[in-house]
Design a protein around this nucleic acid. Structure first.
Lengths: 107, 107
DNA sequence: TTGTATTGTAACTTATAAAGTTACAAATTA
DNA sequence: TAATTTGTAACTTTATAAGTTACAATACAA
């Protein structure tokens, strides 16, 4: 069956932690430990995000935005895409049962 | 003091529940109870979102997207804006202490 | 090669919050 | 007035972000 509709055909969006891991940290040339200190979070939090085991929360997005002089939105949008993708590719049974609204013919 | 920088000058973004309350429900002409049933969530969940007492989660965004034939992103972006605004206008002390990264002169 | 720094992660605790259920009073509407 | 709808309190359950401590495995630098 060549299904093309389900939006699940797109591959999983990039986790913001991957950007941190592959682009930001190498670029800045600082350790995870240093980043954690500067953002005032635990080393563990950085490690888990970098390995994509945790979502990058709104709080972390703001911290990064301050530190990197970017916007919180740019970070959160990435996470949002991951969140949506994961829910859709896991609860598809459930969501399939939600029927589209149709206007009723007036009696 | 005429401060103009702090991004807190913008007023609080619209909660997605307000759209549901003011636009969607009147437009569709259905009750909260009916919406809850169709989305397969509890009546309470709808009530709390509509009264802006809870965030509209990714899960709810997907349900609404199915029901209304819109995108989850359109709903989640609104919530994201609210989340960021609330954190920034409440933890500003904390975030102020996160210093911008500066490249060190190579030794 | 030895020693220091860095990292990954397990185990545990704490705190927060989304969501459900039940119940009841108030308000709305038919 | 009678039925429907709504707001919300009280409570429980479930999930998870985040911290701390500790230890083993690398990686790296002198």
């Amino acid at each position: 069956m060549t299904m093309q509709s389900l939006r699940s055909n797109k591959r999983k969006p990039t986790h913001p932690g991957a950007i941190l891991r592959e682009d930001i940290l190498p670029e800045l040339g600082i350790t995870q430990t240093d980043l954690a200190d500067r953002l005032k979070v635990s080393r563990r939090t950085i490690s888990e995000i970098i390995h994509e085991r945790r979502p990058l929360t709104a709080d972390m997005a703001i911290r990064l935005a301050h530190f990197l002089d970017t916007t919180p939105e740019s970070w959160l949008n990435m996470q949002q895409a991951v969140d949506i993708w994961e829910l859709q590719n896991g609860n598809d049974k459930l969501y399939k049962n939600i029927k589209k609204f149709v206007y009723e013919a007036a009696a």
